Simulated scan of single mutants.
Amino acid sequence: MKAEDPVRRSATMRAVKSRDTTPELIVRALLRRFAPFYRLHRKDLIGNPDIAYVGRKRAIFVHGCFWHGHECARGARMPKANADYWRAKIERNRARDAANAEKLRTAGWRALTVWECELKDLEALEARLREFLQS
């Protein structure tokens, strides 16, 4: 590994956005077709959901497979460098996500997690979103 690789990797990781990501923008574009009037990144809600329908008490989280430890090919891939750090970080993210979902349920909200890999089939994702918002 070259000496500049850790520096370059650090800069790359710092540049990863937590809001208005490409997967989130795609989900929002789908929702605008049939369920506009959502709110974004409500800090007053448990877990700061990416998309919230306050009147319906529905929260949507758009998760990157790697960052949130999804059980797909991309989520299962673990960096070779500093593997212990990444394993612990992703496990903390998963535990936090589960705790936030439970707290939302307790508060009377329904939560849906949309995984980055689900964007491969937009038709199926749209059907899932419609069902979540109508139930």
Rank of each mutant, 00 (worst) to 15 (best):
E123M: 08
E116C: 01
D121R: 04
A59Y: 08
F37C: 14
V27K: 04
R39M: 08
S10G: 11
A98L: 14
A81T: 14
A127F: 10
D50L: 03
F61E: 01
F66T: 01
E118A: 04
R56W: 11
L129K: 00
T106D: 15
K43R: 10
A76F: 06
D5H: 11
A52P: 03
R19N: 07
L104S: 01
Y38L: 06
Y85H: 13
F34C: 07
V54D: 03
A111P: 02
N93Q: 10
D20N: 00
A95E: 15
R9C: 09
H68R: 11
L30N: 06
R32D: 08
V7R: 15
G69R: 00
A107P: 06
V7P: 14
Y85N: 02
E126L: 06
T106H: 11
D44G: 02
Q134I: 12
E71N: 09
A3P: 07
K43L: 08
C117Q: 07
G108R: 01
K2F: 13
K2A: 14
A124P: 13
V16T: 05
M78W: 02
A111C: 13
F34A: 07
W109E: 06
L104P: 01
A76T: 11
M1Y: 11
D121Y: 04
K103G: 01
Y53Q: 05
R92T: 09
Y85L: 10
K80N: 14
I90T: 07
